Amino acid sequence: MENVTGLVEGEETTAGEAEFYDRLRPLVASYCRTPRIERVAVIGNEPLGSSEERAAMVDSADLVFRVNGFRVDELGSERAVGRRAEVVVFNRGVRPTPWFFAGYPERLYLMIEPGRLLWENPKLPEFWPQDLGIVTMPNREVVLPLGKALGADPRAGGQWATTGTVMLWIATRLFPDAHIDAAGFSFVDAPGQTSWNHAYGDPSAVGVEHRIDLESVLVRRWIDSGRIAYHR
């Protein structure tokens, strides 16, 4: 399908949301390796088989987003998901992998904290490097609008999108005119799963705070519309 740009019909941003992304965009763009951001890769943590084509797609993007406890291809290993990571979107409960902090001075870390709407402790994890700053994503301009698009109310129902879907949401709004390549989101094809397999580490249960069936519908709409090119 031909790639389209802009936002999917019915997902227009409010003036407040647009102002937030306008403020954030120059900071994110400063981590890009090229003067213009025309193609963005957004990679989730589903275990993926080897693919030179997929890895090359990721590593040739202008900007690469990763999520939570991600992994990247190592030198000398089979290629699957590429080696680059300029923007890391994570939540406070992240379990760092060997790649999470690698080269962190050259990355931007964006933290989401939907649990702050109800119960989450605002302290950073003890393992966080003292010289590593983060940018916290506001619930009002990010998590709540995404919840509305999903049909879930984070404040009333205590349900919100997974960090991976938040990452996709942020990327499409930061760069509405860019081509978005995405891979590694298992709920796209398995919306009924009750546990996650990760590219690194042990499986874990899908949290009760998530409605990945709704996330699957939303992301499939982005795929079907051509807003996102999804790579299996």
Score class of each variant (00 low, 15 high):
E120H: 12
V89E: 09
P96I: 02
G69Q: 10
R232I: 04
G10S: 11
F70Y: 15
Y104R: 13
L24K: 05
G147D: 06
G147M: 06
L27E: 05
D73N: 07
D153W: 00
V143A: 13
E209Y: 09
G69V: 06
H179L: 14
V67W: 01
D131A: 00
V188D: 06
R33W: 11
T97L: 03
E78P: 10
N3W: 09
E113M: 13
E141D: 07
E11D: 05
I170Y: 08
F70T: 09
V81W: 01
G115I: 15
V64W: 02
G201V: 05
L48Q: 09
S50R: 15
A61T: 14
T194K: 15
H198S: 04
V217I: 14
V188E: 02
G82V: 09
S50M: 15
G151Y: 00
D181L: 10
R155P: 12
D181H: 10
V40E: 01
Q159D: 03
W196F: 04
N3Q: 14
P125A: 04
R211S: 06
E86Y: 11
V28E: 01
G192E: 14
F185G: 09
T172C: 13
S186Y: 06
A156H: 08
I112M: 13
Y31K: 11
G69H: 13
F185V: 12
A205F: 15
D153A: 04
Y104W: 15
N3T: 15
V42I: 07
P154L: 02
G157S: 12
I228K: 06
V4P: 00
D213E: 14
L124Q: 02
E113V: 11
R66V: 14
G184S: 11
R107D: 04
T34K: 15
F90G: 01
E12G: 02
R54G: 03
E113N: 07
L24E: 03
V81Q: 03
V219E: 10
I170C: 06
I43H: 04
W222C: 08
R33Y: 07
F70R: 07
S204K: 13
W99P: 01
A61D: 06
D224E: 12
F101M: 12
R211V: 04
L144T: 14
L214K: 13
N45Q: 08
R36N: 08
Q193E: 13
P96H: 14
V72P: 06
T13L: 13
N91Q: 10
L144G: 04
A18K: 10
T194P: 08
C32D: 10
E11F: 07
D59S: 04
G115S: 12
G201H: 07
S186T: 08
G192Y: 09
R95K: 14
A229K: 15
W196R: 08
E12M: 00
Y31R: 10
